[in-house]
């Protein structure tokens, strides 16, 4: 299967702004499924609402574009009804941790075999630049004209605390790293949460003095460091990247199959 066979070409060019990081993630995702040689009919994508959720329209998988925040809940039903499907769930930061926060922590706890990708641009892009639970204090947004006073979540810590069995982080600058982490996340049995910091030059960068796409990506390069690296050791204030947890634990669909076996005894 060639790379291009995994996309619905007639819908390009995509709707994202010039410089948006979402296309980079889409590209990495397509390379990952191509590398793994996965059949398209085994692939499924369930998304919510927001810029990130539009990824679902561009991949030639079974695609379900659902409601704001509800992607993981819909995906849970889909996966349980047909466990053989490989289910990707791309979400934005507001989608995953604000309106969908409850579904997010419970999907982590349940350890159901879904690949959750949080595209964290720290802003509500589709509605025009409001602050999200990932924006953090001091951020300027259309709903925080005097700067945000809201403390942010740390998605990695949230996922770890909620019991996710695979948790990783990277950025839109680290293109090859997205591919390798996505591949590991996909192959992980159980819930995998991959946070990808993606730039929103239109609503975040411009308003918060981070410049355009290139400058924002340079920040990802300079302000992050791999876990266990000398760079991180020397400067612990940097944002760590890499795999924070990869544990083998009973997966929900498999456990449910055991429930069925017990019930039928």
């Amino acid at each position: 299967m060639a790379f291009r066979d995994y996309i619905r070409e007639r819908f390009f060019p995509h709707i994202w702004c010039p410089g948006c990081g979402h296309g980079i993630v889409l590209n990495a995702l397509l390379h990952t499924v191509e590398d793994l040689g996965l059949e398209r009919t085994s692939l499924c994508m369930v998304s919510g609402i927001g810029c990130s959720s539009r990824i679902a329209g561009y991949v030639d998988f079974h695609t379900m574009h659902t409601m704001h925040g509800r992607a993981l809940a819909c995906a849970t039903g889909l996966k349980l009804a047909k466990p053989s499907l490989n289910v990707f769930v791309p979400m934005g930061d507001g989608d995953a941790t604000a309106i969908g926060g409850n579904h997010f922590i419970h999907a982590c706890r349940r350890n159901i075999d879904l690949t959750a990708i949080v595209l964290n641009n720290r802003i509500y892009g589709m509605t025009g630049g409001q602050f999200s639970p990932l924006s953090g204090r001091g951020v300027l947004a259309t709903t925080a004209p005097y700067r945000s006073i809201d403390e942010p979540f740390d998605i990695v810590k949230l996922a770890l605390g909620a019991g996710a069995t695979f948790v990783a982080r990277t950025t839109a600058f680290h293109v090859l790293e997205i591919r390798s982490l996505l591949k590991k996340a996909m192959l992980h049995k159980g819930i995998s949460v991959l946070e990808i910091l993606v730039q929103c030059p239109t609503y975040f960068g411009r308003k918060n003095g981070q410049g355009g796409a290139v400058e924002m990506m340079e920040l990802y390069r300079d302000n992050t460091a791999p876990l266990d690296s000398k760079k991180l050791e020397d400067n612990p204030s940097l944002i760590p990247r890499g795999i924070f947890r990869a544990d083998a634990k009973p997966e929900y669909c498999e456990e449910y199959a055991r429930v069925v076996a017990r019930a039928k005894e």
Binding site: V46, T66, C74, T76, A81, V259
Partner: peptide, 28 residues
């Protein structure tokens, strides 16, 4: 479970209805 079907208690009412939508698309 005795009939090979799926029962899941979801985290809330919203999620239950969403899971139903997802499962129905998969043929349930």
């Amino acid at each position: 479970p005795r009939n090979g079907g799926v029962f899941i208690q979801m985290e809330d009412e919203i999620a239950s209805m969403c899971a139903v939508c997802g499962a129905a698309l998969a043929g349930a």
